[in-house]
């Protein structure tokens, strides 16, 4: 096994949206991490990464949440989560503390251990023994924070190429923001709608039957729009495909739609 550290102890950063909307994404992440030989634990004291406060200019609250998260993940060799956006937020923690504040060092330390799941599997533990099949054509949306802040681009594609029967059709403007933007989508809903409408057009033009991405925020936004437009395109988090866990209904779909699909 090409793993520099044998059975590293990994703390799962669940993320709010996976916890609340789509636990299957967190379970799929655990399954992939365990397949890669990691010992996975879920620290009790984690909540949100703090992004809503950070993006609203409330630095003090963000710092409170950062300290809580840093403490919750003390002692883990790595912190891994199924979101470039939330892990990206963990990478901003050092900016929250002054140079001589001891928390700054701890924040730097957390940052050095925090990875998005596809990045972790590919770049850190060099795992590619994907044991999954997916019948269909997918298209991949590159979520902004993962792409531009963390450099997640080839990693999910490399892993997806190991999935049996899967075809990837790249859409036009795969790297253009979907218009989610956290609170942006409710603060400026009509602008957000324009952006997500452009996106769903590109998604359907790609000819794919499933939209895949690495961030639930973006996926909820795009899936919600695809459903509202009546487009017959499903949306799934990349880890569901990689872990072979596509027996649950796709995002925003019901049990009976899954039955129809089968």
């Amino acid at each position: 096994m090409p793993n520099p550290t044998q059975n590293p102890k990994v703390g799962l950063f669940v993320t709010c949206l996976a916890d609340m909307f789509r636990p299957s994404v967190a379970f799929a992440t655990v399954k992939l991490l365990e397949a890669a030989g990691c010992k996975v634990e879920v620290p009790e004291n984690q909540t949100c990464c703090g992004q809503p406060a950070y993006n609203s200019g409330d630095k003090a609250t963000t710092a409170d949440i950062a300290r809580q998260t840093i403490e919750a993940f003390d002692g883990y060799e790595y912190i891994v989560g199924p979101s470039g956006s939330c892990i990206g937020m963990l990478h901003y923690y050092p900016d929250l503390f002054e140079e001589n504040d001891p928390w700054k060092k701890r924040a730097e330390d957390l940052k050095s251990r925090a990875y998005e799941i596809t990045q972790f599997l590919t770049d850190i533990v060099d795992f590619d023994r994907i044991n999954a099949a997916f019948e269909g054509t997918i298209t991949y949306h590159d979520s902004c924070s993962g792409l531009r802040q963390l450099g997640v681009k080839q990693q999910p594609r490399k892993l997806l190429s190991k999935v049996d029967n899967l075809t990837l059709n790249e859409m036009e403007e795969a790297e253009t923001c979907c218009g989610f933007g956290g609170t942006f989508c409710v603060k400026y809903p009509d602008i957000s709608n324009r952006m997500v409408s452009n996106k769903t057009q590109y998604i359907s033009d790609s000819g794919a039957t499933t939209l895949v991405g690495g961030d639930l925020g973006c996926l909820l936004n795009m899936a919600g729009k695809l459903k509202r437009e009546g487009k017959q395109i499903q949306a799934r988090h990349v880890v569901e495909i990689l872990a072979g866990m596509t027996d649950t209904p796709a995002i925003g779909e019901a049990e009976y739609e899954l039955a129809n699909e089968l």
Binding site: F21, C185, K187, K227
Partner: peptide
């Protein structure tokens, strides 16, 4: 049983334009 919500109170900014995918059920 629908898997998504067409209109959600206090979330008009979202549901005026797109459906709200429903949570799977129990939290992770």
């Amino acid at each position: 049983k629908k898997g998504r919500i067409k209109k959600l109170p206090l979330a008009g900014g979202w549901t005026d334009w797109r459906d709200m995918p429903a949570p799977q059920g129990k939290t992770f």
